[in-house]
């Protein structure tokens, strides 16, 4: 793929108009606010960073593995199943499989790619990192851009959820985004060579608090 086309594809799949359902998930931010884990702006910003770090330490190994195996269906199925086994947190599992399935379907249909559409039937769980890596691999997007975009999406979605929870304004959110996304290249470098056996959670509190999402009586997000 030419550099320009690669950029266009990446812009398209990262666009908030690309319907993967990312905006119905807060990645634990809503639960953290309700449970008083996050009580001020500084803690909110840290909370976004924890989400990005966990997406790096846990998600990036799966993105990389499925990117490298994007043409081998059996391997992808095994990676997807392993991702499922490693996600006992049912809220995280729900967030990951719902977004993964939507992403696979949207990519398959919008790019008219039969390979992606057939993956929809073959993958048993469709976890987001696995689907993300596989789709970008199939479309020939560079691996480093894939990882960067994956983490960008994680950060963007959690910040966006706090706008809708009325904790930050839209412009303030962009200032936070600018500051926090500077760490993304470092996060990519920390985890880019990790195997799926090494995938782990670095900040368990945000993961645990996301797990408590269903304990809340009223909620705006799915996770």
């Amino acid at each position: 793929m030419s550099e320009q086309n690669e950029l266009l594809t990446l812009l398209q799949i990262s666009d908030s108009a690309f319907p993967t359902g990312g905006f119905s998930h807060s990645g634990g931010v809503e639960s953290a606010l309700k449970h008083n884990i996050v009580t001020n702006k500084s803690e909110l910003k840290d909370c976004f960073s924890y989400c990005v770090e966990n997406a790096g330490s846990f998600g990036i190994p799966f993105v990389t593995a499925s990117y490298n195996a994007c043409l081998e269906i059996q391997k992808l199925v095994a990676i997807d199943n392993h991702c499922d086994v490693c996600t006992p947190n049912h809220v995280a599992k729900r967030a990951s499989t719902r977004q993964g399935r939507s992403m696979l379907e949207t990519c398959g249909k919008s790019f008219g790619n039969s390979q992606m559409l057939s993956l929809l039937d073959q993958l048993q769980c469709c976890h987001l990192p696995v689907v993300y890596g596989a789709c970008c691999g199939i479309m020939g997007i560079d691996i480093k851009s894939t990882m960067t975009a994956f983490l960008y999406n994680t950060l963007r979605s959690s910040i966006a959820s706090s706008i809708r929870l009325d904790k930050v304004g839209p412009l303030e959110a962009q200032i936070i985004q600018t500051n926090l996304q500077k760490t993304i290249p470092d996060v990519v470098n920390r985890y880019r060579y990790r195997t799926i056996e090494e995938a782990c959670i670095v900040f368990p509190v945000i993961d645990l608090i996301q797990n408590a999402h269903d304990n809340m009586f009223s909620k705006l997000f799915y996770s």
Binding site: D46, E53, S57, A199, I201, V202, F203, P204, V205
Partner: peptide, 22 residues
Amino acid sequence: TVYKDSIHIHDVPGLKMKSSMK
């Protein structure tokens, strides 16, 4: 394998485990 849970608690550049634990 039916279950796997892995965590690695440590400081990473710019983020302290202490503050993440409240």
